[in-house]
Simulated scan of single mutants.
Amino acid sequence: MLIDTHAHLLPYDYPADAPECFPRMEPVDGETARTLLFGQMQFKARDVFFDAERRLEAQDASGVDVEVLTPMPPLLRYDLPLADGLSLARHVNEFSATLCQTEPTRLIALGMVPMQDPDAATAELTAIQEMGLAGVEIASNILGASIGHEKFLPFFAECERLGLAVFVHAMPSPTERLPMSAMGTYVVGVEGAFAAASMVTGGTAAKCPDLRISFSHAAGGYPLMIPRHQYFWGGSWNEEPKNPERAVMPDDGPSPLEHARRFYYDSLVFDRRALTYLIDLLGADRLLVGSDFPAMPREDPAGRTLASMGLPDDVLRQITWDNAWRWLGMQPTR
């Protein structure tokens, strides 16, 4: 059994009277695909992005039992005026909920909110829950601001209160220091690390201990930096007992590793050696299967690298099935 927790959707279309800043989905002659036009972006979207029947066929072909669907990240346009951003989010959320009603035991969706206005985003969470969406997707930064900034704390506190899962997808910052050509490679690692680290260093992780939050691509470079933070916090190497005399940034709260082990991380890191490190450092109970499908092709079959690692059956089941339900806060489907 396998759940793909990092898969994307796109609405089939947008209202004819939508603002000019809205996306458009234009037909492709002779094909079932549609072209997404959004600002300077042009993206040919195969019908699997918006057709439930095609999604289920793709699941069956790759050995996926359940997908957690989130909006394609370019839809997270926090530069839009609030009214337009809220309207876009509601349209995408309604489409997502409708798509999943086709087969709710195999299609589970998260919504989106206008994070450019934290108060409006927080107020929208109740509607997301009432629509039957399991949580919310946000970008790794909000117009350059770290998600761990105190102004977003009420948003995360409300997600925690409502029991909504949060998925953080790495996205470039307006002050990007790498070219856009690096978006699919190094920007993912840098932005994921900033996002996860900010949740710890900004205090949100401590103030929202029951928040169920997952980071795309295993939060990029963050796991490699946790031991350094652990040393500054406790003055010791290799997770040995705390040495206050050496600690540079001591405090009496949970260690950086304890915070990191409350987060979830998808396993889309492309190498079994990286997966081995993640399991060893963070624990098998923190990892989820992710693919970025259909923006990227899945392994064939899904989870092939994990299955090739010789993991005990109970560990493999945790990563491919059990952990996802705990992150979602849902009972497993049959």
Rank of each mutant, 00 (worst) to 15 (best):
P256Y: 04
A196N: 09
L316F: 02
D47E: 15
M183H: 14
R161T: 13
A307E: 13
V136C: 13
A274T: 14
F263H: 11
G148N: 08
A61R: 15
F43M: 14
P73S: 12
S291I: 01
L133E: 03
V28H: 02
Y12H: 13
P227A: 08
A7M: 10
E160L: 04
L110N: 07
G283I: 03
L82Q: 11
G63P: 07
T70K: 06
G234V: 00
L268H: 13
M183G: 02
R106D: 09
L107M: 10
L311C: 09
Q129R: 15
L75H: 08
A260Q: 03
S267H: 08
M309F: 00
A284C: 03
R262M: 02
S308R: 14
G202P: 08
G63F: 09
T175I: 05
P297R: 13
P250L: 01
R228C: 01
H6W: 10
E176Q: 13
P227D: 06
G235T: 07
L281F: 09
D4E: 12
P250T: 02
V66A: 12
T98W: 01
G189Q: 04
S181V: 14
M296C: 11
S173A: 14
R90L: 03
F50N: 10
V188P: 01
L278H: 10
L9W: 11
T70F: 04
Q116Y: 05
V166Q: 06
E158D: 07
Y264N: 07
L287K: 05
A89K: 09
A120L: 08
A97L: 07
E240Y: 00
G235K: 12
